[in-house]
């Protein structure tokens, strides 16, 4: 590796995040006397990454394009609540979960389209728009449609799908833990996001728009259309992720996604995305989600009361955003 490339790498946030992750793993591994490396513990942490990691991908692509989406959890919640309610009433999803997923994706896409229509047609602060649509969607789901919690009556196929596993591991104490099938979707989504962002002209359009919207327009990109497609796809994927969560938790709770954006957005920024757009990568985002999930799930291992979870999350984010701000300041000089 030549010197210039080396220098470029060490200037990236992703590089430092990865170092932090390695150090954290080492420290927690030592403090917990190796129990972090128990197969069951690893499986638990990977399992906990599924939903947040997938949401982070949605958040990442929007942020790369210079947007700030507060509404994706509300879209997911409305999409899956509506989908499961319909499945329950129609008696669908008894043998196959496909109907549930299809419905949730379609609803998600429609809601995303709504976001996309507003954002692409009017030059507005995306944070304020999506705050508005978030509130609106929550109102639709719990006010207008009065969607209820579905727990024990959740259609069988959805439950079954959620409980299905790739493999089972047993730790030294004989405890068993299963690796959920849903993990595959996290891997696929990360791979697809990475491919789209780096290897397609659509992905480069997102970086271009995030870097300089006027230039992107002049270069020949249809910025309006790109944004519309982006928010529609993000909506559809959010619907899908929501359904994954329903299956994993074996219940559909309309309120479950409230304030989810406040944990996902900071994590994505921690991973090197910029709220001003044009920066961010799948690798960095996954690393940041990894750090946060690791910390959340190993509090007990290192003997810290789990009530401190929120505090440590906040502290990591705080340090993360401060360090990247200082880095940006240093670059200027």
């Amino acid at each position: 590796m030549n010197k210039a490339a080396m220098k470029r790498m060490t200037r990236r946030t992703e590089f430092y995040m990865f170092l932090v992750l390695i150090i954290l793993i080492a420290v927690i591994g030592i403090v917990s006397k190796g129990s972090l490396f128990e197969s069951t513990q690893i499986v638990t942490i990977l399992r906990a990454m599924v939903v947040d990691g997938m949401f982070a991908m949605c958040c990442l692509v929007v942020m790369v394009s210079g947007g700030f989406d507060m509404s994706f959890p509300a879209i997911a919640a409305l999409a899956y609540s509506l989908a499961t309610t319909i499945c329950l009433n129609q008696g669908w999803c008894q043998t196959s979960p496909i109907a549930g997923f299809a419905l949730s994706i379609v609803f998600g896409a429609i809601l995303g389209m709504f976001n996309g229509w507003i954002i692409s047609n009017f030059k507005l602060n995306t944070m304020l728009v999506t705050l508005g649509t978030q509130t609106f969607f929550t109102g639709v789901s719990m006010g207008l449609l009065q969607l209820r919690e579905i727990t024990s009556t959740l259609p069988v196929a959805l439950k079954k799908f959620g409980l299905s596993s790739l493999f089972e591991v047993t730790n030294s104490a004989g405890l068993k833990s299963t690796m959920t099938t849903m993990f595959i979707f996290l891997v696929i989504l990360c791979a697809v996001t990475s491919f789209v962002l780096n290897k397609t002209m659509f992905g480069r359009a997102l970086y271009a728009i995030g870097g300089n919207e006027v230039s992107a327009e002049r270069a020949g990109y249809n910025v309006k259309k790109t944004k519309f497609i982006l928010y529609t796809v993000v909506g559809a994927v959010s619907g899908f992720i929501g359904m994954i969560r329903v299956c994993m938790a074996s219940q559909s709770i309309p309120k479950a996604m409230v304030n989810k954006e406040f944990t996902i957005i900071p994590a994505v920024i921690l991973g090197g995305a910029s709220i001003f757009g044009g920066e961010g990568s799948v690798f960095g985002t996954v690393t940041a989600i990894g750090i946060i999930t690791l910390v959340n799930n190993s509090m007990l291992l290192v003997g810290i009361d789990s009530y401190w979870k929120d505090f440590f999350n906040g502290l990591i984010i705080l340090i993360g955003v401060t360090v990247s701000a200082l880095q940006a300041m240093r670059k200027k000089h």
Binding site: F68, P266, D310, G314, L315, I317
Partner: peptide
């Protein structure tokens, strides 16, 4: 630090302290 990020992080810290 960009204000939105700084205050979201502090929001989490305060909530974390309260919860603890």
């Amino acid at each position: 630090v960009p204000p939105v990020m700084a205050t979201i992080a502090m929001q989490m810290v305060w909530k974390g302290l309260s919860t603890a």
